[in-house]
């Protein structure tokens, strides 16, 4: 039985003298995993490595127990929607998917049936017989997604899959990822639009300059970084009084007034101590209307990790 994980064991990839990724160790479990990093950070290289489009200079990669050097086995269980726009010259949307399915060994009738199903799933039925070259960016994104899911793979890899999609299609696409991941499959996607992935990802892998800087659930990644001060927005009427009480706490490193009089922006190095302090303040009779962590999204975490902290 194959290992249901995607494993990178000390993998490095260089393009000549340019670093792609360096000494990557990863164990990606099933579910939705987002690779997050700025342009050129190595997200696409990681995806290309796990699909065999590029080969590592060092290290070993296994996708559910299959080496990317065995495309005849790997591509049976893997679908990859690449960032590359082009398909076979002159192909229609239908041809693009159907020809791929024929290579999977499906009969003509079965391939046609699956093609229409995949096209319908991404809402491109009306444009199926038009040439891919004439598609808009969003349509190309969708036809690539359709091609990657047409053979019902166990591992779905998607390079910036939400780029160029309108809000409605975006919501439908995210629902599709969730549905896929719910069945114990892998959905690995990349994005640099950070807010959109922390909403639906089970795991996040933060990558910068070809190195993994953090991995795991967004919350647990956040908790791993003990030294990182957490920022909270305190909604309260007596802001200056609360501020003076909090300044007495040693774990508080910064307190600012929130814009538009929303309350206070508090930076703490110890969440538990902060929670205890707030409890104490509330018990002293000062009203605190709400406590909102403002940096638990990927943006803040990412900024902290990549930008060297505050």
């Amino acid at each position: 039985m194959s290992t249901p994980e995607i494993v990178f064991d000390n993998v490095s990839k260089f393009y000549g003298e340019v670093l792609g990724v360096n000494r990557v160790d990863l164990h990606i479990p099933p579910g939705i995993t987002s690779l997050v990093g700025p342009n050129g950070s190595g997200k696409t290289t990681l995806m290309n490595l796990m699909t065999g489009l590029v080969h590592p200079n060092a290290g070993v990669i296994q996708v559910r127990g299959i080496s990317p050097f065995a495309p005849e086995k790997l591509m049976k269980i893997l679908g990859y929607a690449t960032q590359y726009d082009a398909g076979p010259r002159g192909a229609t949307g239908f041809d693009f998917i159907n020809s791929g399915l024929l290579l999977h060994g499906f009969s003509t009738a079965e391939a046609e049936k699956r093609t229409w199903q995949a096209i319908e799933r991404v809402g491109l039925t009306a444009a199926a017989k038009r040439k891919v070259a004439g598609y808009s960016k969003g349509m190309r994104q969708r036809i690539r997604l359709a091609q990657s899911i047409a053979h019902d793979p166990l591992v779905l890899i998607l390079d910036e899959p939400l780029n160029g999609l309108d809000p409605l299609v975006r919501a439908e696409t995210i629902a599709l990822f969730r549905e896929y991941a719910a069945g114990g499959r892998h959905v690995v996607l990349s994005s640099h639009v950070l807010q959109e992935v922390d909403v639906f990802s089970d795991q996040v892998i933060l990558i910068a300059n070809g190195m993994i800087v953090a991995e795991g659930q967004i919350k647990s990644v956040r908790e791993e970084i003990h030294e990182h001060p957490s920022q909270y927005l305190l909604h309260c009427k007596e802001a200056s009084r609360v501020a003076s009480l909090l300044f007495a706490e040693t774990h508080i490193s910064e307190i600012r007034l929130a814009p538009e009089g929303q309350g206070l922006l508090v930076l703490t190095r110890n969440r538990e101590a902060f929670a205890t302090a707030l409890e104490r303040i509330a018990l002293s009779g000062i009203d605190i209307d709400g406590v909102i962590p403002t940096d638990e999204n990927v943006d803040a975490l990412y900024e902290y990790l990549i930008g060297g902290g505050r």
Partner: peptide
């Protein structure tokens, strides 16, 4: 040059085939 070779590399076929 057409940036379409990946289409073939993502098919379940050996490179030799």
């Amino acid at each position: 040059l057409d940036r379409s070779l990946h289409f073939w590399f993502l098919a379940p076929v050996k490179r030799e085939v």
